[in-house]
Computed example of a mutant assay.
Amino acid sequence: MIPRAPTTALMPVAEAAAALARLARPVAAVMAGLTEAVGGVAAQDVAVAAGLPRDRTALRDGWAMRADSVVGASPYAPVRLARPPAWVEAGDPLPPGTDALLPPEAIGADPLEIEAEVAAGEGTRAPGTELPAGIRLVAAGERLSALHALALAAAGIDRVPVRRPHLRLVGTGPDALTPVLQAWIVARGGTAEIGRAPEGAGGAGAEALAAALADALARPGADAVVVIGGTGPGRRDASAEALARAGRLEAHGVALRPGESAGFGAAGDRPVLLLPGRPDAGLAAWLALGRPLLAALAGAAADPPHVVSLTRKVASVIGLTEVVFLRRVAAGAEPLGGAEIPLHRLAFADSALLVPPAHEGYPAGTPVEVLPL
């Protein structure tokens, strides 16, 4: 077993996240249909070539009309036309010579008498204003949403290049974290498969885990491997030594609470992340290190900040990045706990706060940036 770094030698979280991200390269882009692409990260800008609609189009059902031909029309002073107006359905182009849409009730019993006036353009979409020519619908590095897909489909774009990193999760010993991590990875636009590694003791355990890790890396498809468990100082903890045997161990011990026994490295050209097996520590380490790794593999741009106000004071230890799990409520975000939080409280968390190492915490009412879970 490789001894973990002493507390004074723990790698700062920002430094560890940056070093781990440098081990990752954006994965190759694949062309995907819109349904499949939702949640993935766009590999390039996607823009509209020609403006839409091509013609002035009805936004609702009604009578197509030239606005200046019915100025002043009302039920008391109807304007009489030479011929009845054309009826159009929502989404249809307006007939030539018309520029507005009257509601159905604007015409009484006599189809030639108009009982309401209308402003030019009312009830219609002007040419090129729904999707202007050249407008960028999705930016490179942006995560595609269902609303992106709606606009892309309207523009006639049915396939887009996306990046979807595939991670291989290797659980050691009793493990309940891999299904959670798999769900979180999928929610962030990646894919993940779950594997198991043998559990042993001492050097034999490290050798068996190194073989399992080598096998996980040898099989095609994985852009990174995440090992869950076996990162602590216990007699059966062998993840760090296994990585050192299968590849190279870059760091073991991060200034993170909970999750200080996390580590990372690489084997071949792929990054390997070592997460503690205890739920609070493993999830905290994933938030601090795994999310940046996944973003680097996907070539994802930084997420927009989610800012909420704390309902209670949060205290933190100077020198460590502290992860506090939160539950968003009507008044803001309620702190649930951090290190050693019991599962009955962790189960209610829907976001997390990473308190920087230079802070002692925040008083109640402080607006803070949180990570949605």
Rank of each mutant, 00 (worst) to 15 (best):
R4D: 00
A5I: 00
T8E: 09
A9E: 07
M11Y: 03
A16N: 06
L20E: 01
A21W: 07
R25E: 10
P26R: 05
A28P: 02
A28L: 03
A32G: 02
E36C: 01
A42H: 00
Q44V: 04
D45R: 02
D45M: 08
A47F: 14
G51V: 08
T57L: 08
A64D: 06
R66L: 14
R66E: 10
D68L: 08
S69H: 14
V70P: 13
V71M: 12
A73R: 10
S74P: 09
Y76F: 10
A82H: 15
P84M: 12
P84R: 11
A86P: 09
A90G: 14
G91F: 08
L101F: 10
P104C: 10
I107T: 14
D110I: 14
D110A: 12
L112K: 15
L112F: 15
I114Q: 12
E115M: 13
E117W: 13
A120E: 13
E122R: 12
G123H: 05
A133I: 06
R136H: 02
R136N: 00
L137G: 05
L137R: 05
S145D: 05
L147I: 02
A149C: 03
L150R: 03
A151E: 12
A155S: 06
G156H: 01
I157Y: 04
P161W: 05
V162R: 03
R163D: 04
T172L: 14
A176I: 09
A176F: 07
L177P: 10
P179Q: 08
P179M: 09
V180W: 09
L181E: 05
V186K: 10
A187C: 02
A192S: 05
D223F: 04
A224F: 10
V226N: 13
T231Y: 00
G232Q: 01
R236S: 11
R236Q: 04
D237E: 07
A242W: 00
R245H: 02
A246T: 02
L249E: 00
A251Y: 03
H252S: 01
V254N: 02
R257T: 05
P258A: 07
G265V: 08
A266E: 15
P276C: 06
R278F: 14
P279W: 14
D280N: 03
D280Q: 07
A281F: 15
L283S: 11
L283Q: 09
L283I: 11
R291Q: 11
L293T: 05
L293Q: 07
A295E: 14
A298E: 04
D303L: 04
S309H: 15
S309L: 02
E322R: 13
E322L: 07
A333R: 03
P335Q: 13
G338W: 04
L343C: 01
L343D: 10
L343N: 04
L343H: 03
L354P: 07
L354M: 13
P357A: 09
H359G: 01
G361A: 09
P363F: 11
P363C: 06
A364W: 02
T366M: 11
